[in-house]
Nucleic acid binder design. Structure first.
Lengths: 209, 209
DNA sequence: ATCATTTTATGTACTCAGTACATTAATGGA
DNA sequence: TCCATTAATGTACTGAGTACATAAAATGAT
């Protein structure tokens, strides 16, 4: 088994990502050079680019998990529950389960502020949001047996991600002002629920609602 | 009057933007250098950066018009029509009026494909979408006399821009497949109308619906 | 018209992300 | 141990964007 190899490779990768993320949060994304990251992680500059084609990839290193979560939610859904309702329930489950994906804490605040301070990181966050929209659209259409390019699925996915995005941002705003995690969670769910009402109305008559 | 100065400045700016856009569409955004743009526009390289801080600014040179249109729609609205319905009517008006903002033609197809082929241009397109969302959220809250950070306004704006974005993309897909402008227009309005139903449901009980 | 002022165009020299390509070194299997 | 594979690294380059200085053009007042 060629295991030590992969373990070492992953360790190197993690070391770079950790060093980079720490530096980004400390000093801001745009005030950290790749050379400094390489030095901090004690690797060569090219090793950094070997593992992370773009500088911002070191910060958003776990974005595949989000995609997988959204796919998995529909894959394991209760057939009696409509896809859209499944996603609403997922939001509640993530909050109840203290999922890091919707965490409102001093730590997550640091991440958010780091992103907000950098055009590059904001751009990547938007790209990830678009990817998630695609994932949901495809998962939705597949889930009800429609073609992958079904316009209804795209509208549903767009509305869903818009809702979650606004919910996330507003919840973080709430947390910033109140420093109260529970209040932020409540704000998140309130907006998700409100958006779900709209989503269901828009999808009335389709298999998604 | 210091008019020739501004006229010359604007002419220089327009010349750069025109040359750049032509080259971008011809050869792809990433295969055109700023030096080539400067040469094509017959100006110095620094003049390019003087007018356009970012390369992609030369392509998206008229994005302020979109913001102004969305603000103006609410400013001049019929008080008997709800803000959300105002935006639905705006979409229909733009289509009926053959507005370049929602044009489906071989020319617009060229623009879209140029954007789709470049991560940088896609990133800027997403940023513009976010800016439009902000504009709508602020305009909406202002329009009904709520605070500018009203969560309902942000949700409404998010859902609205999500709807328009999906409508625009799907309509362009329709056009690409059918080459039929009218069919693309119909697809655009169908999705906008469907989204509006959801938007109204989500905003039920607020002054926005 | 001429000169001083302001604004616009431009040149020089730099930083830094990202790429192409070559090379070294570590690892695993035979 | 020797060979094949893969990871780490070095060198040299391209091209966007910045800082700062300068030239050139337009303006207004005299």
């Amino acid at each position: 088994m060629s295991d030590r190899r992969t373990r070492k490779r992953l360790a190197t990768r993690q070391g770079i990502s950790d060093a980079a993320t720490r530096l980004f949060i400390e000093r801001g994304f745009d005030h950290v050079t790749v050379d400094e990251i390489a030095a901090a992680a004690d690797v060569g500059r090219m090793t950094v680019f070997n593992h992370f084609p773009r500088k911002e990839d070191m910060f958003f290193d776990r974005d595949e998990e989000g995609r997988e979560m959204l796919r998995e939610a529909l894959r394991q859904r209760d057939p009696d529950v409509a896809p859209i309702e499944t996603y609403r329930l997922l939001a509640h489950r993530l909050i109840a389960g203290r999922s890091p994906a919707v965490e409102f804490s001093a730590r997550s605040q640091g991440f958010i502020e780091t992103i907000a301070a950098s055009e590059t990181l904001k751009a990547r966050a938007r790209a990830i949001r678009d990817e998630l929209t695609q994932v949901v659209a495809v998962a939705l259409s597949e889930c009800v047996g429609r073609e992958p390019a079904d316009p209804d699925a795209y509208l549903a996915a767009g509305l869903l991600l818009a809702t979650w995005t606004v919910a996330f941002i507003q919840a973080h705003r709430t947390f910033r002002q109140t420093r109260d995690t529970e209040e932020a969670r409540a704000a998140f769910l309130a907006i998700v629920d409100k958006g779900s009402i709209g989503l269901k109305a828009a999808m009335a008559g389709t298999p998604y609602a």
